[in-house]
């Protein structure tokens, strides 16, 4: 796996609105977690140090603080930005995610063997595979693999 933060960047002027939007998303999510999610979904106790809320709240507050630092750094430092990432291929990504979700729903309804085979076929179709023989090959291989897993008892 390549870590994109380590990659070389093609540099161009940085729009100021980007750090603000980033802070709005990350900071907003942190505030939502601190003031809504944790109070409503986690029981409080008298002893803060031993409270189930302690680590989640501290974590969310840290994220908020770090997002603020990221905002200040983004606004003040003479940074440059990577070239806008290509949006080409994004429909394929969305199609792949949808195919996976539908496939998993079939796994839930019809079991791992049938659902898994359907999933692999849907994923193949989502990335543009249309050749019948290749689709047959993917389906047959998936079926054999899933039978092996089922047979092994694991």
């Amino acid at each position: 796996m390549t870590d994109p933060t380590d990659g070389d960047a093609v540099r161009r002027p940085r729009p100021l609105v980007r750090p603000l939007v980033e802070f709005a998303i990350v900071g907003g999510a942190s505030l939502f977690v601190i003031f809504y999610l944790i109070p409503n979904e986690t029981m409080a106790t008298a002893n803060w140090g031993l409270s189930p809320r302690m680590v989640p709240t501290v974590s969310a507050a840290l994220i908020l603080g770090l997002a603020a630092i990221n905002l200040v750094a983004g606004l003040l430092r003479p940074a440059t930005v990577a070239a806008a990432q290509s949006l080409h291929g994004l429909p394929t990504v969305v199609a792949l995610i949808l195919a996976s979700v539908v496939g998993v729903a079939v796994v839930d309804r019809a079991g791992l063997i049938v659902g898994g085979t359907v999933l692999s076929l849907l994923v193949s179709l989502s990335i543009g595979e249309r050749h019948p023989l290749r689709l047959l090959g993917v389906g047959a291989t998936s079926l054999a693999l899933l039978y092996l897993v089922d047979w092994s008892g694991l």
């Binding site: 998993v104 898994g116 595979e129 290749r134 993917v138 899933l146």
Partner: peptide, 18 residues
């Protein structure tokens, strides 16, 4: 890669399911 993607996604599903 057109064969790797569906098979790896299937592995991912098997792994998470099991």
């Amino acid at each position: 890669i057109r064969l790797i993607i569906p098979m790896v996604v299937l592995f991912c599903v098997i792994g998470a399911y099991l």
